[in-house]
């Protein structure tokens, strides 16, 4: 009931960024807007923040009609991909900005800034300029700045997109822990399914301006609403006109299981503990299968071996829609 988006559409010239999107983002949770680049997820976030206006539709934040409120009146915290640090202000001044705008008493501002800098582990950098911080530190400063005004909702636009892989992973864990401490309704945009699955309580999958599915990470992974969600959340392969995950396929060296599909191994690649097979069947020329090294050794597969493929019991499969066959 926290953020309600109803019937929102947005076009940029000929390009439809959002097409009649309605979604409810629950209070107090960490929600991810997940989808490929250009799918409209950032636009939706910016419309919620008031940084962009929608062509149609309404936005309610915590029960307040916010559709026509300017950004500065929405009381949202926004964290930008490239930090948007105020370069001419010290770290402490950056964090204090929103409070100074709200004309809070000086000692209150100082106390709150100290508290936040401690929260994001930047207390020893209070007097540095943003240019003297690393990317990860800058993003933590930006987060403290957004939290300082005690926003109703915290919005993060690809917050870790500009960081290198290691820092990215650290900050991701840290965001999760921070959210468990602060409990502010948080929405973050990402195109990285691993990030969404690992951090979010709830995921909204957005593609081509439409919402494909809303659910918990487990729901999305185990019960994808369609082939797009299935393939966006992890590797997939096709077997007998159905999408299935390559590690959810059993490889047999006999035809005694009913419904198993016969084929021939065309390629074997070993990567560490994993063995990846390519199998040609009568219908699909290139089914990929992932085995552990032990499984592969037990089967004794090699290029040219005849095999039979069948989805593991409990495997998630989704029929291929006509739309996906093109891609």
């Amino acid at each position: 009931m926290s953020i309600e988006v109803a019937g929102v559409s947005k076009r940029f010239g000929d390009f439809v960024a959002l097409d009649d999107v309605s979604v409810t983002i629950p209070s107090g949770q960490l929600t991810a807007l997940l989808g490929p680049s250009g799918g409209g997820k950032s636009t939706l976030l910016r419309i919620i923040a008031g940084l962009e206006s929608s062509d149609t539709g309404t936005i309610h934040i915590e029960g307040t009609e916010a559709t026509h409120l300017p950004a500065q009146k929405r009381n949202v915290g926004f964290v930008f991909q490239h930090y948007a640090a105020f370069k001419h202000m010290s770290v402490a001044k950056n964090v204090a900005f929103g409070l100074e705008i709200r004309r809070r008493p000086k000692n209150e501002v100082r106390a709150r800034v100290d508290e936040l800098l401690r929260l994001v582990h930047l207390q020893q950098f209070a007097h540095r300029l943003p240019a003297q911080l690393s990317g990860g530190q800058r993003q933590r400063m930006a987060l403290a700045r957004a939290l300082a005004v005690e926003p109703t909702v915290l919005l993060l636009d690809e917050p870790f997109g500009a960081l290198d892989a290691k820092v990215r992973k650290e900050l991701r864990d840290w965001l999760r822990r921070l959210h468990d401490e602060v409990h502010v309704t948080t929405v973050f945009v990402t195109h990285d399914q691993e990030e969404a699955l690992e951090v979010a309580d709830e995921i909204v999958v957005i593609n081509e301006g439409r919402i494909e599915q809303v659910g918990t990470p487990d729901q999305l992974y185990d019960e994808p609403a369609n082939d797009f969600v299935m393939s966006f959340l992890g590797p997939v392969t096709r077997l007998d006109g159905e999408l299935v995950r390559p590690h959810d396929l059993d490889v047999l060296d006999h035809d005694r299981v009913l419904g198993a599909t016969p084929g021939t191994v065309t390629r074997v690649v070993r990567v560490g503990f994993e063995v990846r097979l390519a199998v040609r069947t009568a219908v699909e020329p290139d089914v990929s299968v992932v085995l552990t090294r032990a499984e592969a050794r037990g089967l004794g597969v090699d290029v040219g071996s005849p095999v039979w493929l069948v989805p593991t019991r409990g495997a998630t499969t989704v029929p291929v829609m006509p739309r996906a066959t093109a891609g």
């Binding site: 500065q72 926004f78 490239h82 202000m89 700045r145």
Partner: peptide, 27 residues
């Protein structure tokens, strides 16, 4: 304009954004 957007999201109006964020960066 990201710094300006950040200022607006933190509650600054147009005039405040200009004096506190835009002008210092083009000083």
């Amino acid at each position: 304009d990201e710094q300006e957007q950040a200022a607006r999201s933190l509650g600054a109006n147009g005039v405040q954004t200009f004096w506190r964020v835009t002008l210092p960066s083009i000083k």
